[in-house]
Simulated assay, not measured.
Amino acid sequence: MTTVHGVFASAKEHRSLESGDIVFAAGDTGAAMFGVVSGSVQLRDGDDVVTTLGAGDTFGELAIISKAPRSLTAVAAEPTTIAVIDERTFIFLVHETPTFALQVMRSLAARIRSLDEIRLS
């Protein structure tokens, strides 16, 4: 069985980030999502950390689903490598590894729950 972050090897582009590097900012438009290959990424709502993601996690998925602006800011929390997954690569990954789509949906659901908890507290 292929691990989720193992499928990130199919991404054409990988980025190396230093701690504090911004992947994208809230309000930005985007045409790609990302997978954490190594390291960690914080998703922030202003100065509040919504969640910290590690190897195998995905973020920025709404850019593939919707053309709406980014809702959070993504920042490398340490030296990190991410895979850039554009729509074409996403479709390939879903076709070749159907569990990838399930992982993306689980990631989105967890993030929505985290945001709900922050907003309701």
Rank of each mutant, 00 (worst) to 15 (best):
S71I: 09
S71R: 10
F90R: 08
L108G: 14
H95Y: 12
R106A: 10
T29P: 04
S16I: 02
D45N: 12
E61C: 01
E61R: 00
T97Q: 02
M33E: 07
A9Q: 08
V104I: 09
I65E: 03
T73A: 04
V36C: 11
E117S: 14
R15A: 06
I118E: 06
T3F: 03
F92G: 12
F59D: 10
M105I: 11
L72G: 08
A83G: 15
V104N: 05
P79M: 10
R119N: 14
A68V: 02
E96V: 01
F34Y: 15
M1R: 01
S71E: 05
V41Y: 05
I85D: 07
K67C: 04
F59P: 05
G56M: 07
D45S: 10
A109T: 15
L93V: 09
L120W: 01
S38E: 12
T51R: 12
A101K: 01
F8W: 10
A55C: 03
E61V: 00
F90Y: 15
L108C: 15
E13A: 08
T52H: 05
D116Y: 12
V37M: 05
I65H: 01
T99N: 12
G20H: 05
F92C: 01
G56D: 09
V50I: 14
D28C: 10
T2Q: 04
S40H: 11
A32E: 13
P79Y: 01
G20R: 02
T52E: 15
M105A: 15
G27Q: 06
T97Y: 13
P98L: 06
S107N: 15
M105P: 02
I64L: 15
R111T: 13
V23P: 04
A110Y: 13
S19R: 13
A68M: 08
D48Y: 02
T97K: 05
F59S: 08
R106P: 02
S16F: 04
A55N: 07
T81G: 03
D47S: 13
E78Y: 05
V94H: 03
G30Q: 06
E13F: 03
R15G: 00
L62P: 00
R88C: 00
V50Q: 05
V37Y: 07
S16G: 10
G60S: 10
H95P: 00
M105H: 05
A83R: 13
T80G: 04
I22H: 01
G60E: 07
A101H: 02
E87A: 14
E117K: 14
R106N: 13
V84F: 10
D45E: 10
S71M: 08
L93P: 11
H5G: 00
V7Q: 08
F59E: 07
A109M: 14
